[in-house]
Design a protein around this nucleic acid. Structure first.
Lengths: 215, 215, 215, 215
DNA sequence: CATGAATGAGAATTCATTCAT
DNA sequence: TATGAATGAATTCTCATTCAT
């Protein structure tokens, strides 16, 4: 069970109003989906509650029947996403593959998550830094650290066993790979041409072998 | 002369209040520097005029002696940055190097700009998309297009002359290289260990040759 | 029959919705009891309909099957209380006792009401002034006036017949006695130690003979 | 120096925005005076910020140039009042008078405070209980306890030295005297007829010697 | 009788901006 | 150049109330 999962579970549970949480989960999900799209498109701060409500076809005040606050909407969007992400990552890490294969699996899994939670990923990219400052979003920091450990560890093992180059600054490489993957959420649109697996394959090809033609 | 430069120049000139322009340019620069730091740290929307003023040691209202509006502050920050960026890029492109060398020069130039205008680059990364929606910031879109033309063109020429791999989706490659470089502004801190040139070298090494060990 | 009774009776009767009245009187009473406790504890304005519903174990909307509005709840609570109060007071006044004995009987009766309707009395103390501004609560003002007449009259008769001191400002004395008695509702908790009659006895002792030791 | 003073001083000091506090104290005082009147007349919760602003002849938002929040307005009103109250009480208690004289002095001082801070006293009476629940208003509880200690102690000493009756429940007597005095704030209007000292004299006469005519 | 979902009218608060001094 | 005081529009959130089921 991941840190994100535990923290995320604790966060809503600490609220007084449990009523809100008990409301029909279907409607919640619809509304959260709408909210996520708007947050992703315009940014969390720039998104007004009213805008979300408009998009959902209800009045702004009505959102508060389902959610405590605008904040608790992002909270639920992000923690849901991170929980699923870590389910996938944990499975990959638990499989005990060789470093190179692990890297490939992590990248592929990442693109799958981008495909499934595009909006959430975009929000995470843009907002996690300043949201993490609030105690309520502590799980973002936790997740960040687990994330770094997983990727850095994989790279280190790969350097040790000869899969990856030894002449690179490993933290720089980590950032390079990490950004390379996740920034994709800002332009990725599922369209049939490119399945997440196909994109992952091309990215991996570039990251692993470079874009220069080999002699 | 770049599009950015012209547009940027036109933008303030279209204002009614010439008062603003008459103020001492030194003070302006100081204040813009302060503003850029705060914008970069907290985001444009989340940054209050008062916060900038606090940081500058004056009252919020006093900023309006120097600038028309909060918007005109980002405007000046971004257009100044883009003008310098294009001075560099134009020089590189005008030199007529071979594709691979051009790519290397563009990347190196980019990291230099990140080094010199870290705050502006961070703002550009986070805010350009939604700022570009306003006519005033049309030059952001112009710049974006010139940018894409320069990079995509270089990649295409490189594919044609055998410098770069032919089996990759070229737009994907473009995004890969572009993001790879500019996202660095979100974590880059000038510290002596890594000069922009050194970081550029490592990035290029990864992008061109990949991180996998060659046989 | 008192003014309060008549006004209170007229008030709900003037409503359109007769539905409300048809509900089981037992459930009404339970709910009113719950409402009274919450109003007393947190104040009328600060009490949300939802809070009352929570306490009653139902949803906010469900209260509207039983009552027209939050206002009609306080209305019923206060008018019920005042009707009972005036039943007692009227009996005392009709008995035709001497002034001092009348005063004692009124005080004792008051503490009995506090004992029986603690919540209602507390609400009355805190809210009657501003509720009385609305026409619907005109009976509060009526009751207030009858109240003043009864007490002031008793005091005046007592001054005339030599039961009470002649050197005191009679309105000041009235307020003194009135406040002395009713403010008790703010701290009184029925606990077995102090029966209302016992508290009345001690209060009367203080009011009539003072707290200083007589020579 | 009293508890109220220290707590009150700490409360505003804990704020981030010191700017607010630094604004001209004259305007603050005027606005606080207005606010206190409205709070006293309609209750804290029922008073809208807009109402205060209307009364002050400015717009609601403009109040926030001077104060952080509605809460900080009551805070300042109450703590200012309590500080002055305790200056007076402490002086009385430090004088080391005999119990009866101390009681008289405390009552007189109380009526003087009611005269000077009528609105604040009325607010204190109505709102202190629920405000005290918030940490920010902890000094209300502190003050309450000091208050009880001062009055109960005086009564106890008076019982011991034969000034006061020995057959009364002392806590009941405490509440009786306390409420008797402070409830006066709800009807007291300075009018020339009754100086605070004159009212204190009459109250003391009733409290000490009772309203019944002595034989 | 009760629920679930909404409405709509405020409420407090924030903030870019203005302007007389 | 800067201050102090305000404006006014927008924003998040609250809550009594309604109503179809």
């Amino acid at each position: 069970m991941s840190t994100a999962k535990k923290s995320a579970a604790k966060s809503p549970a600490a609220k007084k109003k449990t009523t809100t949480v008990s409301a029909s989960p279907e409607r919640r999900r619809e509304l959260l989906h709408t909210a996520a799209e708007v947050f992703a498109a315009h940014g969390y701060n720039a998104t007004t509650v009213r805008r979300i409500a408009d998009e959902a076809g209800i009045l702004a005040g009505s959102l508060y029947y389902h959610f405590d606050s605008k904040e608790s909407m992002v909270d639920e969007i992000l923690s849901t996403f991170l929980n699923e992400l870590w389910d996938g990552y944990d499975a990959v890490l638990a499989a005990g593959h060789a470093p190179r294969k692990t890297l490939e699996a992590l990248v592929t899994e990442s693109f799958r998550e981008i495909d499934r939670h595009r909006a959430a990923v975009a929000i995470y990219q843009k907002e996690s830094r300043h949201l993490a400052a609030q105690p309520r979003f502590g799980y973002l920091t936790d997740s960040q650290q687990k994330f770094e450990k997983a990727w850095l560890g994989t790279l280190e093992r790969g350097v040790a066993d000869g899969s990856f180059r030894t002449d690179l600054d490993i933290r720089l490489t980590y950032r390079f790979v990490r950004d390379t993957v996740w920034v994709a959420a800002s332009w990725y649109r599922p369209d049939g041409h490119h399945s997440p697996e196909e994109i992952a394959r091309q990215y991996l090809s570039m990251v692993l072998d470079g874009i220069a033609l080999r002699d």
